[in-house]
Design a protein around this nucleic acid. Structure first.
Length: 558
RNA sequence: UGACCCAUGGUGUAACGGUAGCACUACAGAUUUUGGUUCUGUCUGUUAAGGUUCGAAUCCUUAUGGGUCAACCA
């Protein structure tokens, strides 16, 4: 191995550097990380980065990772989301040590709050949210103290107990930390710790009517689990000061928060709010619509966990704003699929080819399942005198460098024979209806003694053996790189061509046995996977991603 | 007009005071029974100006640009 490669392998991201320092300094014998989603939506590509990061770190270094649901807001959270999140993390190939919920800690958190009150560091405020906002100040102006700020400890204790007991309606009281209303960091201006919500919680039911805020749950949960490195995204940087303040005042296990930049990907959106909108307003079929950047959408689209992990590795981790090209994701999935996908032939838009000198009944031809895999084996494909080829694979007046079929020109039919186009038959409208061709009997694939070399090889299916299937061609969800950055509503920028359904394509018969577990490459067409709604009577395939297409590029250039 | 975070090719990410590298993309060529794959090569970069230093992408200063912060959301 060259020094160059070695060096590349050893290069660490900033979090790995911190961890290696901590470990070698003996600060921790091993590390604990956590992946802390709020169960209010499905996981997407952004979460995949966080998952790969958190779980990846404890794969590389001694320690473990917890899955913790940040379920402190009962009105947005549902068990359906919990289930999907667990399924997605597992599908991505990771195992958590403990499955935890912030709601597991509600009793402890309540005790913590009492402790803070007793230390004179928290008080019950009767202000409305409007009043509070008015007293909060602005980033450049200090806030003012709430009139309730100097209540006695006894009074606060009493009020807080009664808040918990359900004596007050929603919005009437909050528990706030007593820090500093003129603090330069807005988050330190007496942040709310608890609010009243008479709402049913997906796990604790109606036991509670007060719920802790993020800032009084997240860091405390980290601490309870003795998380050493609590990794979150950059927008939480200002929260770190409060995170540390609470840990210090509560005198609990000192977890530390580190922030990295969220990964943005072009031609899509990764905000749960926006994705929820697309689902609710039925711009897409559901959370697992194959156009969605959700893990479940990608799964249904045919992406492999390996390719997603590879993608996350390649884009890395850093602290600067970024917009990752979705082309890299596509590269990653092509690279993996190229190695594992079974090759099959499917004609999308058929034109009939009649081989005039083919007198036999037909024959079975053998073709490799995957040229990239020498142990991939072969399959049998029926050949006959009447075939379908792709309409775009024939041109009556071809431009130069067109290697496909044209009058008088020869091409090879993949794994079969070389044919020559002798005559073009058209219908009344001048549309090509049939191509009459002759074949070269000595050019049979694998036993070619014809000595003829052709530039083009086409996929094909035998007319009478062809199997009907539906194919769904997916493209990018949005027609602009950053829909969030455009004028007006982001939904105005949806790509109207993001789904194109071909209800009847012609597939080689082997595809009758297609399975949900398998990936396919329709030769010269792209990578496909069976859709979950498919059945033997109605085969449905989703296009994961197309093949690179040098000819299309050539044509575009003119 | 406050505080904080950030700034390396088109994109993402390395270089930890000592040769600006890797990957994707793009382009050119070779190979190919997929215009796929594979292989070879090429183009493109340290936001700016000062300073420290034998030497600066790296340290300091200022400027510029981008982002975050005023939810009883997370």
């Amino acid at each position: 191995m060259s020094d160059e490669i070695k060096k590349e392998e050893e290069s660490l991201n900033f979090l790995e550097e911190i961890i290696e320092q901590d470990l070698s300094a003996g600060k921790y014998p091993s590390i604990v990380t956590r992946f802390p989603p709020e169960p209010n939506g499905y996981l997407h590509l952004g979460h995949a980065s966080s998952i790969c990061l958190n779980f990846g770190l404890t794969r590389k270094y001694p320690g473990y990772t917890n899955l913790r649901f940040d379920d402190t807001n009962p009105v947005t959270e549902e068990t359906e989301y919990v289930d999907s999140i667990k399924e997605d993390v597992k599908w991505l190939g990771f195992e958590w040590k403990h499955e935890r919920y912030a709601s597991d800690y509600f009793d402890t958190l309540y005790e913590y709050a009492v402790k803070l009150i007793e230390k004179g560091l928290a008080y019950v405020d009767d202000s409305t949210s409007e009043q509070m906002a008015a007293m909060k100040g602005t980033p450049t102006e200090p806030g003012v103290n709430s009139p309730y700020r100097d209540r006695t400890i006894e009074e606060n204790l009493d009020l807080f107990t009664r808040m918990k007991a359900g004596e007050f309606p929603d919005g009437s009281h909050t528990l706030r930390a007593k820090i500093e209303m003129a603090h330069i960091n807005m988050l330190m201006r007496d942040p709310i710790l608890y609010r009243i919500k008479h709402a049913h919680h997906h796990r604790t039911g109606d036991k509670w009517c007060i719920y802790p805020m993020y800032d009084f749950a997240h860091g405390q949960s980290d601490s309870i689990e003795e998380v050493t490195h609590s990794i979150c995204t950059l927008e939480f940087v200002p929260h770190r000061e409060l995170y540390d303040w609470l840990i210090e005042k509560l005198d609990i296990y000192p977890s530390h928060q580190y922030e990295f930049a969220r990964r943005n990907i072009n031609y899509t959106v990764t905000s749960k709010r926006k994705l929820l909108q697309l689902v609710n307003e039925q711009y897409v079929e559901g959370w697992d619509d194959p156009r969605m950047p959700t893990i479940s959408g990608l799964r249904r689209r045919g992406y492999t966990p390996e390719s997603i992990r590879d993608f996350c590795d390649r884009i890395g981790v850093a602290k600067r704003e970024n917009m990752v090209d979705v082309g890299l994701l596509e590269f990653c999935v092509r690279e993996h699929l190229n190695k594992i996908a079974l090759r099959r032939m499917v004609v999308f838009d058929p034109v009939k080819v009649v081989i005039t000198n083919y007198t036999g009944e037909g024959e079975m031809l053998s073709s490799e399942n995957n040229p990239e895999d020498e142990n991939g084996g072969t399959r049998q494909i029926p050949f006959s005198g009447e075939l379908y080829i792709e309409r775009e694979d024939f041109m009556e007046n071809p431009p130069k460098k067109y290697f496909r079929l044209a009058p008088g020109q020869m091409v090879r039919l993949k794994s079969a024979y070389i044919i020559k186009c002798e005559q073009v038959i058209k219908d009344e409208e001048g549309q090509v209806k049939e191509l009459q061709c002759t074949y070269i009997p000595e050019s049979k694939s694998g036993a070619d003694t014809s000595g003829i070399h052709v530039k083009g090889t086409l996929h094909w299916v035998s007319v009478k053996h062809a199997v009907r299937a539906e194919v769904r061609l997916y493209d990018r969800l949005f027609k602009v790189e950053d829909p969030t950055d455009e004028e007006g509503d982001f939904k105005e920028y949806l790509n109207p061509l993001s789904l194109q359904v071909l209800p009847a394509v012609y597939a080689e018969p082997d595809l009758l046995h297609a399975s949900l577990q398998e990936r396919y490459q329709f030769i010269r067409k792209g990578y496909f996977v069976l859709d979950k709604s498919s059945n033997p009577d109605q085969l449905i395939f989703n296009r994961t991603v197309g093949l690179k297409d040098a000819w299309a590029k050539e044509v575009k250039k003119g």
